[in-house]
């Protein structure tokens, strides 16, 4: 009897996920588990927000040091004068991608004397990343990117996933607990277009702030404690990561404005933090593969 249970257990272990051993293997449900695991890696990184108004695109990233003893990871990477990225996931992979983006932009500038159109660059990046999802000797990049760029078509925010899907966004957020920030963005989306440069940065700060867990949020009323990085690009504004002084100034500004706009935020939403983000806990769950477990009765 016991032996039977043991066998059952081994069977279960073996076939819990039969279809995730290789990127090129389909599950019978039509899913690529390795690609989905890579997407899960993005959710382990700290949150980052991208948003834009008519003239500017802004990236705000939360820089939590991985341990008390280390400095925080760099979350924002400048690519070119008109473009920069914000990352969540495996930083080493992001470095490889940013090297690619940089050399593409540089080569474009050398050939044409102008900046790489953002949509075209992202399409090419997507094509490069897609190959990793279709070859047995590759693994998907374990990093999600938010790209803020400005070109003749105006400011852009793009989201790029490890699955090589990319999305042209009005505002977007990726990383751990980013759902709450997304809720903030969705709620204020209609106001973004018309608002000023300062406003859009403050919105970014508020959004990233709402992705913090409650206990950190209550520490000295949040804002000044926030360890964030802000970058802006737009009309007559080359991509710039704000320095410490500007950072503090904007945090203060956001704090002042926050008392009015954050107050309008229902308290209920704050309470939702923990429950909403529970599925994105630090150990990614394996996708449920019914066919792999189905025969165990």
């Amino acid at each position: 009897m016991i032996l039977r249970f043991v066998f059952h257990y081994i069977w279960l272990k073996m076939f819990r996920n039969q279809y995730d051993s290789d990127v090129t293997v389909w599950s019978p449900q039509g899913r690529l588990h390795q690609v989905e695991y890579a997407i899960a890696a993005v959710k382990l990184g700290t949150a980052t927000v991208g948003l834009k108004n008519n003239d500017y695109a802004v990236l705000v990233a939360l820089c939590k040091p991985p341990s008390e003893l280390s400095a925080s990871q760099r979350k924002l990477i400048p690519i070119d004068d008109h473009l920069g990225i914000s990352i969540a996931g495996i930083t080493a992979d992001a470095r490889v991608l940013s090297k690619y983006l940089r050399s593409e932009c540089l080569s474009y500038k050398h050939s044409y004397g102008s900046t790489y159109p953002v949509s075209r660059l992202i399409t090419n990046l997507g094509n490069k990343m897609q190959t990793t999802t279709q070859r047995y000797d590759r693994r998907p990049y374990g990093v999600g990117l938010l790209i803020a760029g400005y070109d003749e078509k105006g400011p852009h925010i793009y989201k790029v996933e490890p699955s090589a899907n990319f999305f042209n966004c009005k505002a977007m957020t990726i990383g751990s607990r980013s759902q709450s920030a997304r809720t903030y963005l969705e709620r204020h989306l209609s106001t973004f277009n018309g608002c000023s440069k300062d406003d859009i940065i403050c919105h970014g700060i508020h959004a990233i702030r709402s992705s913090l867990p409650n206990d950190e949020l209550n520490k000295d009323d949040g804002a000044s404690q926030l360890n964030i990085t802000i970058a802006i690009v737009g009309k007559d504004q080359p991509f710039k990561i704000l320095n410490n002084d500007e950072n503090t100034a904007y945090l203060e500004m956001a704090k002042e404005r926050g008392t009015s706009s954050m107050a309008s935020k229902p308290q209920k939403d704050d309470d939702n933090f923990s429950t909403e983000d529970q599925p994105e806990s630090s150990t990614p769950r394996d996708p449920q593969v019914a066919i792999g477990t189905m025969e165990i009765q």
Partner: peptide
């Protein structure tokens, strides 16, 4: 994508 080459390019 609606982007066309410019004379300077």
């Amino acid at each position: 994508d609606g982007v066309v080459m410019k004379p300077a390019e």
